[in-house]
């Protein structure tokens, strides 16, 4: 029996609408023992499936300290994620995981976190933000730079007040297409580099978003004196297994599912198939 491929049933406890195409689903395993024992690290992902539809890798978007439940923030853009929009509270999904390596939480202790996200890329970073909000004294600071296409594409808007109010935290927003009332920057997320107060000293960068965005984020930060060692990126790839067998997520000798999805930038800089 291929135990690695056997998912466990989980119920949808809550659905929060984030945008016109994105929802946050709070899930709880039906099995109470599994509910207790299931643990993940910020930045890890699950394989979520709907029988008869398929399986998709989804990052976990809730704080790892949240008891009994976990969240997936899902943008309906594919077969499984589209089908999820038809589900309601109490409906069942199937989960296996967590998989991969997440953000370097131990390394972040005592450091300033520069968090750069684009679009749905904010979802796998939300656990880190929640971690900071829960224990701000453990970190030197948190500066969030978040870019979205339009204001109605921004995720977690209901939480911005709490995030920005945390001691040592700053939240800066950018949109590609702004309205006159939009208080942030109009342009790519890298436009916020001119406003940011984070300096290379004592900072760790965590970034997730479209690869083209991360490419310019990395370039922009390197030009501002940040080193490849202090930048962490989270990558997306097609994944069928999550356990380094199916081959789809390979980049060079690395499996994004097993060695990532979070990589220190130095691990990627020598990959022949240029990605960032």
């Amino acid at each position: 029996m291929r135990k690695d491929f056997l998912p466990a049933p989980a119920r949808i406890e809550r659905i929060v609408r984030q945008t016109y195409d994105t929802h946050t689903y709070t899930l709880a395993f039906e099995d109470l023992d599994l509910r207790q024992s299931y643990a993940f690290a910020p930045g890890q992902f699950n394989m979520l499936s709907l029988f008869g539809i398929g399986e998709a890798p989804l990052s976990i978007s809730s704080w790892h300290g949240q008891p009994d439940t976990f969240d997936h923030t899902v943008r309906s853009v594919g077969t499984v994620t589209d089908a999820m929009t038809h589900l309601g509270v109490g409906d069942r999904v199937w989960i296996r995981g967590p998989y991969g390596h997440g953000w370097p939480v131990p390394e972040l202790q005592g450091r300033n976190i520069l968090l750069v996200a684009g679009g749905i890329g904010l979802a796998p970073l939300r656990p880190l933000i929640a971690e900071f909000v829960a224990r701000p004294e453990a970190y030197a600071g948190l500066e969030i730079l978040y870019g979205a296409r339009k204001t109605d594409d921004q995720l977690f808007t209901a939480e911005y007040g709490v995030w920005a109010a945390a001691p040592g935290a700053a939240l800066r927003l950018a949109v590609d297409r702004g309205t006159p009332s939009f208080p942030g920057r109009v342009g790519p997320v890298t436009a916020l580099f001119d406003d940011m107060t984070s300096r290379p000293e004592n900072t760790v960068v965590v970034t997730c978003g479209p690869e083209i965005m991360m490419k310019f984020v990395v370039r922009g930060l390197l030009a501002r004196g940040f080193t490849p060692e202090q930048i962490y990126v989270s990558l997306e790839r097609r994944m069928e297994c999550g356990v380094a067998k199916c081959g789809h997520c390979m980049i060079g000798p690395l499996y994004v599912c097993k060695d990532g999805p979070v990589f220190r930038y130095t691990a990627l800089s020598n990959i022949l198939e240029k990605i960032l």
């Binding site: 499936s49 029988f51 539809i53 398929g54 069928e240 297994c241 199916c246 789809h248």
Partner: peptide, 8 residues
């Protein structure tokens, strides 16, 4: 070669 898909 060993790559595979998972299909329902």
């Amino acid at each position: 070669c060993y790559c595979f898909n998972v299909w329902d």
